[in-house]
């Protein structure tokens, strides 16, 4: 399983005493900027504590030097070029905690749809001068390359969850992102279950919560943008989809939207049992 690997809660509150202001760096790799926009949306809240934290933005991960060290690095985007690969290793070196944010960083993102396709054919169709394009065959999550301390899922990430996690990390406190399904949040928020009440295919039961059941709250099925929850029983849900008239191809498409291979990998890895 590429994402959804269980990692221990990060051992960060090692310095409960308040020392120098923590440093926060934000890095961007291949992604749509949606997650960084979420960060910018939270900036008002972050500014309120600007005297207690130093924030450095690196909007283009390919320029400038890494320097550091940083207490916390937020990393957006997936690894798609050989340069990315070197860069992320340097960032890991320079960071005490490395937090990946969004489906691109945690699962390879939509751009991972190219995985398994012929990359040269792609580039020759899309670009006039394909020889300028230096890309790896696959778009891969950060955790394929370096150790990741914490993942914030979603496409894009949830602003409330981001602020909560930053608040905890910047104060060297504990974070415990949810590991339960989107269904748990559906029931907690009072959303009606679209799968049961209108036979709408919904990935909620196998998707990790954290979005507050955003889509079911609007009477739509969950698209799985937060990626697989622990023990995702993909086959079990596929069977139910078949029972409500969703065929395997449609299910496959649904499973591969945002987190591309993550659900398929999970299904391959063997259903509900570890």
């Amino acid at each position: 399983m590429r994402i959804g690997d269980r990692r221990p809660a990060i051992d960060w509150p090692t310095a409960i005493e308040q020392g120098a202001p923590p440093t926060l760096a934000v890095w961007k790799f291949a992604s749509c900027d949606g997650c960084q926009l979420t960060i910018l949306d939270c900036e008002d809240q972050l500014l309120a504590i600007a005297d207690r934290v130093r924030i450095a933005y690196f909007p283009e991960a390919t320029s400038g030097s890494v320097d550091g060290p940083y207490d916390i690095s937020l990393v957006e985007g997936s690894i798609t070029t050989p340069g990315d690969r070197e860069r992320i290793a340097e960032i890991r070196q320079a960071s005490r905690l490395l937090v990946t944010i969004g489906a691109c960083a945690t699962a390879g993102g939509i751009q991972a749809l190219r995985n398994g396709a012929d990359i040269e054919e792609f580039t020759s169709i899309v670009y006039a001068q394909p020889s300028y394009i230096d890309v790896l065959a696959d778009s891969t999550p950060i955790s394929d390359h370096v150790t990741v301390d914490l993942e914030l899922r979603g496409c894009p990430i949830d602003p409330g969850q981001l602020v909560g996690v930053l608040a905890a990390l910047l104060n060297r406190h504990l974070v415990r992102p949810p590991t339960t399904s989107v269904c748990v949040e559906c029931k907690a928020t009072g959303a009606a279950c679209v799968l049961v009440a209108s036979a709408t295919p919904c990935l909620g039961p196998i998707t990790q919560g954290g979005c507050g059941a955003l889509c079911p709250g609007f009477d739509r099925g969950c698209y799985g943008c937060f990626g697989p929850k622990e023990h995702p029983n993909v086959t079990g849900l596929r069977r139910q989809f078949a029972a409500i008239g969703v065929d395997d191809d449609a299910t496959d498409r649904l499973l591969s939207t945002f987190n591309v291979a993550a659900f398929a990998d999970a299904e391959q890895a063997g259903g509900s049992e570890p």
Binding site: C183, K187, A188, C193, G204, P232, N233, G236, L237, E273
Partner: peptide, 14 residues
């Protein structure tokens, strides 16, 4: 039953 159960928690919530 674990082959079918999604461990989603809907049953306990309702």
């Amino acid at each position: 039953v674990a082959e079918r159960c999604l461990a989603c928690g809907n049953c306990t919530a309702v």
